[in-house]
Amino acid sequence: MNAKLKWVSLSGLLLIAMNCSAFDLRQSLKDKLNTDVPQINPKLVEAVNVVKEARGPDEEEEIAIGRQISGNLLGAAPLVKDAKLQKYVNQVGEWVASQSERPDLPWHFGVIQSEDVNAFAAPGGYVFVTLGLYRLLQNEADLAGVLGHEIGHVIRKHHLKILQQSQLVDAGGKLLSRQVGGDDKIQNLIGNGAEIVARGLDKDAEFEADRIGVVLATRAGYDAYGLPGVLQQIGHFAKDDGSIALLFKTHPLPDDRLDKLDSAMEDRFDRIKGQTLEKRFYRVKK
């Protein structure tokens, strides 16, 4: 599929999705209006639409947005061609995500071909870890903690909120979103989506995702200290190392994240034992 064409369809998709739902609702309310409750004030109908728009895209739209972003991310870095590895991260990821309050999202996990050290989450349940990060993991609990952090971004809709904000805040964006079809102006407005996952969230969102990662791993039966262990390892990298530049740009420094986790975890995990499963951990070839 042609990139530009597909891109247009993203903008289109996004806009159609948003417009469509508003339209459907309006239509169904109109139907209702014409049948059993003719006395509904059209202003109320408008208000319902406004509320729906303010609440943001529903789950189907959320997944469509995440799909599009993930397709773009995979355009930058394809999957590692190792089916066993991909299946393995999906098994761990699905199990960890099942412990969250959104177990029924269609979760997808993948390891992408990049020696950078990073991980990405996109709305709707898409989570990707770079091969460079995967190589740093020593056991399944480490993997569970890292995936748990990204799952945290998805269930709290951290990226989705940024997407919505950028559309709501920008008055031009609102105007543009009424034109279905998409053009360069819209493209500039939303970016290609992959850029959204590269963009830094605010620090609090990152700290929150860390706390969620530790808890989800624990709920799943793993040792809680996988994620902190990986952060220790990452903090060990030189800050000017190119392979980790984007991670350091988009996340608080590992030492700060460890400080925050330390204060949040306190002694709550002292009596909690968990599995690390280093024997089962799928190791990639060098």
Binding site: L74, S114, N192
Partner: peptide
């Protein structure tokens, strides 16, 4: 192996095949 800096992510184009492959591994 390509890097993953912001510019490269911004310039990335949609890869439907890889996305399908990624989704095929779901558990």
């Amino acid at each position: 192996v390509r890097g993953l800096n912001e510019e490269e992510l911004q310039a990335a184009s949609f890869n439907a095949q890889e996305l399908q492959l990624a989704e095929s591994y779901s558990v």
